[in-house]
Amino acid sequence: MNSQSLVLVGTVSIILAACGDANHRPVEMDRNFGQSVRQLTRAQIANPDAAEHPLPDSPRKMDGESGTNTMQGYRDAYGQQVISQPVIIDVGGSSSGN
């Protein structure tokens, strides 16, 4: 390394050291931090035991043919491209007079 590189590295390290806070203490969070989010998430689940007790007509109990028909119906319903019609909004209008 030449002297210019050493000066540059030294200057950058001094500048970066000046940015640090010598009296920094980690921020202490409340013991219940995030608990409300977890409670709201649990409250939005309709049936928390659904994995242990699946419905009689659940996809896990579906045979191959009905699964294929279900997926084909889904693809047919959502695979079609819908062409939207242009909408003209006339605000204020125009009037002509003599």
Rank of each mutant, 00 (worst) to 15 (best):
V87F: 00
Q35M: 11
V7Q: 05
A50I: 15
R38P: 01
R75M: 13
I15N: 00
S66T: 07
M29R: 13
L55F: 02
D57F: 08
P48I: 02
M71T: 12
A46S: 09
E52R: 03
G73Y: 01
P56R: 03
T70I: 11
V27C: 06
P54R: 03
V27A: 14
H53W: 10
S94A: 15
V91P: 06
M29S: 01
Q85A: 07
P59R: 11
G93P: 04
A46H: 12
R38H: 13
I45D: 05
E52D: 04
D63E: 08
E65D: 12
P54K: 06
V82A: 00
Q80M: 14
I89T: 14
Q44R: 05
G97L: 08
V87P: 01
M71P: 12
G93Q: 12
S58A: 14
S84H: 15
L40S: 09
I89R: 12
C19E: 12
Q35I: 12
V37A: 07
S3Q: 13
P48Y: 06
I89E: 14
H24D: 09
M29D: 01
R60A: 01
N2G: 15
P54Q: 08
D21P: 08
V12S: 02
I89Q: 14
R25I: 01
G10D: 11
C19Q: 05
S84I: 10
N23V: 00
Q81T: 15
N69I: 02
A43N: 15
V12W: 01
A51C: 02
